[in-house]
Design a protein around this nucleic acid. Structure first.
Lengths: 193, 193
DNA sequence: TTGGAAACACTCACTAGTCGGTATACATAG
DNA sequence: CTATGTATACCGACTAGTGAGTGTTTCCAA
């Protein structure tokens, strides 16, 4: 493999990511991933021991970029913390109007693997949500909100609720309603001290 | 079939319901449903044209009982509307601590069938959530809350967020956090007029 | 020439759905 | 009161295809 090439492993994860996100874990075969990556299944199994490992790699690859996006939207928004939090929802609403959008990959995977609580992919999902929640807690504490732990959890609940409801109804306006609710809760927590 | 027997069709739906809810749609084969119902796949296909039809029947059977449960919890709770709404979450938290609990069947099915927006099962899910939202809107309007439409949507968002988050983390305390947030929003809407 | 990376060809279990046929019940015609 | 017809409910055995995962071989760069 020449250094200019995209490493095979990375190509597999990219292909898996697209397919798993768009159709779901169980609906996508390992053969399909291999074909999308432009190689044979046997080569895929040279790089990954099992489909489960591939699923975990798919979600691992989404953790950091997802969080970074939230942080960018928050940082770039005008106004106070309530407006900055609302901006995350506004940006998500815009993303959700794209036809390729299919909700939150972490939550959808957790829903699909609900009968395997110890699955590595679920652990990755938990870690991701914890990182989002922890980051929110920190910025809200810094902004002077009362009980930032509770507030961060409530915002995460609204976020994940919006993911689920918008996916079901295919109506991105729910994302904005969730943003308004989050905004209300942030304002209440700011005036409570 | 004697009148004392449970009708075959009903037995099939009951079996499908248990299996689909516990393991997910795609993880459960038609053979497995037939075996659980105590009959052959051929007989199952005598009563249902396809697996998709069976999936739809599974969710149809959950619509009415689920809503009735919410309504009972609301009606039996002490206190004002904020407390009654919170009671729904408290009762859900209790249910979520049971090991068999696997989140909301409608949302999990929607997540699994995210690439089939027109699927009958998804339509059933949309209708179910609309009924919950509509009922909440009516009782909140009657209680004198400001903008009951928005409030009902926000509560549904918290409900579905809690379903998703509790399922991921296997930590039912998120359900109570969501209840507290819903309570806060209801109180704000009651004092806003 | 050696060892990592890729491929071909395969196994075997399982999956949605189907073909043909059977047991029973209840008609109506002779 | 028998004989035939018809509809319901059921099942064993099958198909054609797909699923995850593997044994073995070939290629190629260092």
């Amino acid at each position: 493999m020449k250094p200019t090439d995209i490493p095979t492993r990375e190509r597999i994860v990219t292909a898996a990511s697209k397919l798993f996100y768009s159709a779901g874990i169980r609906a996508v075969s390992v053969d399909a991933v291999a074909e999308k990556a432009g190689l044979t299944k046997r080569t895929l199994y040279y790089h990954f021991a099992s489909k489960d490992e591939l699923i975990a790699a798919y979600l691992d690859g989404r953790d950091q970029p997802n969080l970074a996006l939230f942080q960018r939207w928050f940082a770039e928004a005008e106004g106070g913390p309530a407006e900055k939090v609302a901006a995350i929802f506004t940006n998500l609403a815009r993303a959700a109007r794209q036809p390729k959008w299919k909700g939150c990959g972490f939550l959808r995977t957790a829903a699909e693997l609900a009968d395997m609580p110890g699955h590595p992919a679920i652990k990755t999902g938990i870690a991701h949500k914890k990182r989002v929640e922890g980051w929110l807690r920190d910025v809200l504490a810094e902004a002077g909100a009362a009980s930032p732990e509770v507030l961060a959890r409530q915002i995460v609940l609204l976020l994940d609720g919006a993911f689920a409801v918008v996916l079901l109804n295919r109506d991105a306006s729910y994302m904005e309603t969730a943003g308004a609710a989050a905004s209300t809760l942030v304002k209440a927590a700011l005036s409570a001290r």
